[in-house]
Design a protein around this nucleic acid. Sequence first.
DNA 1: TCAATCCCGACAAGAACGCTTGGGATTGAG
DNA 2: CTCAATCCCAAGCGTTCTTGTCGGGATTGA
Lengths: 182, 182
Amino acid sequence: MRAQTSAAHRPAFHGTGAVAFSTKGEYGVRLMVQLGRHYGAGPASLAEIAAAEDMPRAYLEQLAFVLRDAGLVVSTRGAHGGYELARPPAAIPMSEVLRALEGPLAPMICATDEPGHDLACDRTSSCTVNLLWIRVRDAVAGALDGVTLADLVPQRVVAIQRALASGATSANQNLEGAATTS
Amino acid sequence: MRAQTSAAHRPAFHGTGAVAFSTKGEYGVRLMVQLGRHYGAGPASLAEIAAAEDMPRAYLEQLAFVLRDAGLVVSTRGAHGGYELARPPAAIPMSEVLRALEGPLAPMICATDEPGHDLACDRTSSCTVNLLWIRVRDAVAGALDGVTLADLVPQRVVAIQRALASGATSANQNLEGAATTS
DNA sequence: TCAATCCCGACAAGAACGCTTGGGATTGAG
DNA sequence: CTCAATCCCAAGCGTTCTTGTCGGGATTGA
């Protein structure tokens, strides 16, 4: 609802210190969650989602393109178009989402999961630290593999959405309260 | 030995994408590893370490101060002074080192390990994603807690160093091969 | 006395991030 | 057929962070 135009640049790194996802990661995941809620109910427009989540629409577009190129969402052009998940939420591991959004998860250049990393790493003695970065990378990859989009979209919300898709057409805004912010 | 003055600014983020430690983390860990090798052999000067690892000395100083303030190393001033580990390597979890160097490990502001995070996080519906960030944070914290400085300083190297401290003076460079880059 | 070292604050270049702008192409509805 | 809604895309701009550098102090052993 409120003013995409006044978004007023947030601090560069949303997460302080090490292990910091940027807003790319956050917005992208939020976008995916919204699409997860909408799953099975036709395409959702970015304008809708941007309003619902109070994120700048134009910026969301960029993320949506990335997610599309990664094969995670499909787009429908033209009027009443929008984005949909390419697969059911349970088949979308968050590792894939975040890798698409933020690039390969490599805590250091020495620990890229891509080939040829050992070439880039010919530091002197202390390259023992590789062990550390690799452990961290694997830990993150494991955590991210273990969570699917379905885990972030409570099942009852999905059920309600589906019911709506074949019944009434309005009143789908009041499901927000479900967020148990522990 | 070779030219601290020509270090020529490296690319800003050493680690691409999500989960990127900065050079602060890398240099700091390398520094700690060097101190680990030197453990029990008196204080080591920053000039020595900077030369051995080819890192800018003045920058290393800043990291050393941080590590000292965190109680991880102790300093001896004056001639023949330098830095020493405050504890044996096995008693230094890397989580502590990296937290000191890079701040609290919080993948997002919503998932700080400090109290009051729920105040900062009053996003709309999608705060379900908290689950994700917290999982990632815990995974990283776990991985980092499970590695101590001793794991990065092979015991035989320590033994050799101690022998050197009371004997010969060279031939400690050929231990590189230990990095099993899978 | 002197040189080696730690201590400390300020600042400069450059990259990355966060977002905006401005236009195009494509499609359903009237 | 026209029009509005939507996706598509590239370029650019200001802010903030990192990555160091610089210059000078304080402290101590020889």
